[in-house]
Amino acid sequence: MCSLCGILGANEHWADAAARDGVYTRNADPVARRRERADRVRLANRVLALYGMRLSDWQGASFLLSTFTGKSEIVEDLGHLWPAAEKLCGRPCDPLALEVLTRLDAGHG
């Protein structure tokens, strides 16, 4: 269920496309899927740390987004991650913000 809009069976997100003819996905086999989820958590946390948040895998099906102060929310995929992150931290998560780019470049994650 989409945690933002409450709709069951929400949109397929492009980064998690169902395996079908011609479509590129890392969902096709369980090992690749688990590896992709682990990589996604690891890299997303580099960015989320700038906003005082972290992501973890939740039962291999969803993700748990938490603030360092204890607020948390379940998110389904990358499409829901950023709206949920902005809601939890109360400010825009902008990849074009110069401060964000400078801190990521400097390795502060």
Binding site: E36, R40, L43, V47, L81, P92, C93, P95
Partner: peptide
């Protein structure tokens, strides 16, 4: 390119802009 990093970037970019 790193596909995972690309996915994180593009979704974050499209969410905001």
């Amino acid at each position: 390119l790193d596909w995972t990093a690309f996915g994180i970037w593009l979704t974050m970019l499209l969410n905001r802009h």
